[in-house]
Design a protein around this nucleic acid. Sequence first.
DNA 1: CTGAAAGCGCTTACAG
DNA 2: CTGAAAGCGCTTACAG
Lengths: 341, 341
Amino acid sequence: MMSKTSTLQDVARVAGVSTATVSRALSHPNMVSESTRRRVSKAVEVSGYRVNRAARNLRTQRAHSVLVLLPDLGNPFFSAILEGISLNLSRKGYSMLIASTKQVHDSGERLVDYLDDARADGMIILDGGLVAEVIASLKSAPQSKRILFACEWIEEDEFPSVRSENRRGTKAAVRYLHDIGHRKIGHVTGPEGNVLMHARKSAFIEEIGALQLEQHPEWIIPGDFSLAAGCLAAQTWIALENRPTAVFCASDQLAMGFISELSRRNFKVPDDVSIMGFDDIDLAEQFIPPLTSMRQDRLLLGETAAAMLLERLESPEGAGSEHAAVIPVSLIIRGSTAAPR
Amino acid sequence: MMSKTSTLQDVARVAGVSTATVSRALSHPNMVSESTRRRVSKAVEVSGYRVNRAARNLRTQRAHSVLVLLPDLGNPFFSAILEGISLNLSRKGYSMLIASTKQVHDSGERLVDYLDDARADGMIILDGGLVAEVIASLKSAPQSKRILFACEWIEEDEFPSVRSENRRGTKAAVRYLHDIGHRKIGHVTGPEGNVLMHARKSAFIEEIGALQLEQHPEWIIPGDFSLAAGCLAAQTWIALENRPTAVFCASDQLAMGFISELSRRNFKVPDDVSIMGFDDIDLAEQFIPPLTSMRQDRLLLGETAAAMLLERLESPEGAGSEHAAVIPVSLIIRGSTAAPR
DNA sequence: CTGAAAGCGCTTACAG
DNA sequence: CTGAAAGCGCTTACAG
């Protein structure tokens, strides 16, 4: 091992060939002879050579890295998605860059700068709530094909995306509650304006209609995915004269907040009301009572997002890869739901 | 805006100066005249110029990015730390690269490769559990000054680190339980071999000794920071003939698992036993009962780690920056602890 | 299968 | 204060 990292030149000298040959032996092994390949790899070992990525990136005009943009780095919901993304990126030799919408915005940077300045080849956006101005700039950018949305998306279906089965999952949740005997079913929604909130809420209403169940506007309680909103929603539920016997919450955090507040007010779940969530976060299983939920496969969602983006980046122009992938969700039945009394 | 990103050359042509001057106007504005500066910045605007990072990185021999290494990307405990790191990195124009120990290991990559191949200037390691072989390779590497541990660390104090007040926090926790009247205090530990586990456990034992409280080996229950381990620990506690009246858990997840299991077995917290955790994760406040905990300022921890690393990277060689920073913890008293009955 | 040479887009001594 | 020129470490037509 040398203390100064060695270059292609060093390897070439040791191997007694040109730098071109070393480069080929490393990147396109089948373009050189067997014996050359061996001498080069020996020389690489001896000198402890590592390719200099900055040089390679400059020469090949690729960054070999992808930016993942989160609405909020502090939100643990994304960690499994990141793991999936990272897994597939590293398999293909790409690095994963992380930034949060808020920080990028605060720093005055433009999002497309990451693409423009050769820091990243593409980006995966996990935030459907980008301000219109940013979206407009992304659309008009010549690099718009290097952008993919995951988990969330934006209304105009201009960018490819990967998402969970929000609508089917919601309908399956309602049907499940119906199947175990509930006829009065409420819903706590996500934040106003959010695409997931909208998908789940509209699917909820449709399924309630399809099952010809009672509909009351006050049974749809506005929330925002958070624990705190779940607590407030529980208070709203308690204050109702005519209460639903089951409540489908748009997220597990909502459901947990809802149950917490109920328990504080001496209501029992599922005896007094069945509560279920969406996501199946790690904690759902450990909650008291264990939470019935609609499981999102966040790891697979991340893996798929990375795979789709790389396919688009590496394929020559308009390779007919799919525009949207939908990841199946699955119903996980636990103790927070039961037949109405 | 052009469809092809423009280069320094383009800007120079528009501004009617040399590329050297454009470069200076951008990087060292006070090295050029006022009027030149203005013409250049106008030309930059017109051409939509963005510096090409790969070229700059190659030329300056810096990656302008830092690798953050996590034991497990799926673990939400780290998200706030990441946010802190990212905040300070982006302020200084650095990008944040993320990888997990497991993935790096699985892919057969060596950790130092990130430094060797010019992908990152330095790294922040959030995993004190690296295998000895990897640690040895890090130590012997010429780039060992570009590595910093955060949150966790490794026993031999060779690398600079940022950590929370694990020992003081633990002692303060025990003292608090003592202050409200407990004389029989137990502890659920983190995973065997973990540095945090060791720091907290040994501080626990010391403080129990200092307060001259009862000591029973079976009151120290082995765990591993997880919810599941907390459940098991509760079973162990239930099985004891002589039970502690308060239990200090080495993590909030442990405490939550402990309480969940107790509640399943019809024990009441804090009536039957006081339980407290360590970390003060978001959920602690919403738990039933709300969890008393020792709060770690994970955001500050991350910010400090980034600041220390950058200082070392940017300062000429052995700038006398501190070797270890310790982030204060604070006691958050909630409903899961009370005076013994 | 291999080598000489050009060039990716910057920054920075060096000279003026 | 400014410009011409070298060079960071690679990869890849091009020619043989």
